[in-house]
């Protein structure tokens, strides 16, 4: 459980996070989505106390992160895959992290095995590829078997097998009642992994809702029809609240009517339809819609803020 209240961060004059309030609940995967410089990383760093908030507060599992007696058991965080001393081996890095909480060597070997690092564990972390670095970061996050997992762009640089593994892992952990908060710029990935979505833009929360609502709410359902009698059908369907769009020959995109209503009208008028496909709005569309609104809405204040806030990794 993560609860942020009016959380804000300024770097000098630049506003990175402009007073956000949200909560991340246990038992589900919460995605954190936003364009570069939107304040995702800054927000995540403030949760574990790496960045000091300019205003507001954030608590994890009931109290500020630093007040916990066993921080690594409360929160596992992957904020920066390169948060490792380059000359130290992956094994020794994890061993040093584990030692702070008296976590056993057995657990260290367990997370190495889990993240598929066994073969390179004794090698210097500085020589790791981006993907291997991510795996090491995830291994470190899992060390304390934490109640809350915070992952900043976890699939960045991972191979398809790794992406699938992370997806299954976070779903499994959420299924066990843990809180999972992950950011990603890959919206298709988010659509497959997250149950709930918090969208951030220019340091402000734009949307905070179940992912289904975000996709459904922003876009009317459209239906694609293919028929040889497109123009005739268009006349029959036209009406209040219905929009029609024909981009290709023998194809019509309809919104305002569902597939069932269209089929009924076609049958009643003896029009032959050879395709009737409901088109679900993709998360991409919903997302661009959301952020477009945000930018338009704030365009006047944008000019004053003096450019984009730092992404700050």
């Amino acid at each position: 459980m993560i609860e942020a209240t009016n959380l804000a961060k300024k770097y000098g004059e630049k506003v990175a996070v402009a007073g956000v309030t949200f909560s991340v609940k246990p038992g589900q995967v919460t995605g954190f989505l936003g364009p570069n410089g939107a304040g995702k990383s800054t927000t995540m760093r403030m949760i574990v106390g790496l960045d000091r908030p300019t205003a507001g507060s954030v608590i994890v599992n009931g109290r500020p992160y630093a007040e916990h007696r066993d921080p690594l058991h409360q929160v596992g965080a992957l904020l920066d895959a390169k948060a490792v001393h380059t000359s130290r081996s992956a094994y020794n890095h994890l061993l040093a992290m584990a030692a702070t909480h008296s976590i056993s060597t057995t657990r260290v070997n367990e997370v190495i095995e889990m993240t598929g690092l066994a073969e390179v564990a004794k090698k210097k972390a500085g020589g790791f590829s981006l993907g291997m670095g991510q795996r090491l970061g995830i291994a470190a996050a899992l060390l304390g078997d934490p109640q809350t997992l915070i992952l900043d762009e976890p699939v960045n640089g991972l191979d398809p097998e790794g992406v699938l593994w992370v997806r299954n892992l976070v779903k499994y952990l959420a299924g066990q009642g843990k809180t999972v908060f992950l950011s990603s710029h890959l919206m298709s990935e988010m659509a497959q992994t997250a149950d709930h979505l918090i969208v951030i833009g220019r340091g402000r929360i734009i949307a905070d809702a179940p992912i289904k609502d975000i996709i459904a709410g922003k876009q009317q359902t459209r239906t694609r029809i293919r028929s040889q009698q497109v123009s005739e059908l268009a006349d029959l369907l036209a009406g209040e609240g219905v929009s029609l769009n024909s981009s290709e020959n023998e194809t019509l995109e309809v919104s305002g009517l569902d597939a069932h209503q269209i089929a009924r009208i076609a049958l009643d008028n003896r029009v032959l339809i050879y395709e009737l496909t409901p088109l679900n709005a993709s998360l991409e569309e919903a997302y661009f819609d959301l952020t477009k609104d945000e930018v338009e809405f704030h365009s006047h204040s944008l000019a004053n803020s003096g450019g984009p806030a730092p992404e700050g990794n």
């Binding site: 246990p26 009931g62 066993d70 058991h73 030692a99 909480h101 976590i103 304390g144 009642g177």
Partner: peptide, 23 residues
């Protein structure tokens, strides 16, 4: 949900101690 969050984790360890940090 709070009760769930309070369950001890299985990774073991006595939490953060200064001795651990020294080590």
């Amino acid at each position: 949900t709070t009760a769930k969050a309070a369950t001890p984790s299985t990774a073991g360890g006595a939490g953060l101690t200064f001795g651990g940090v020294l080590k």
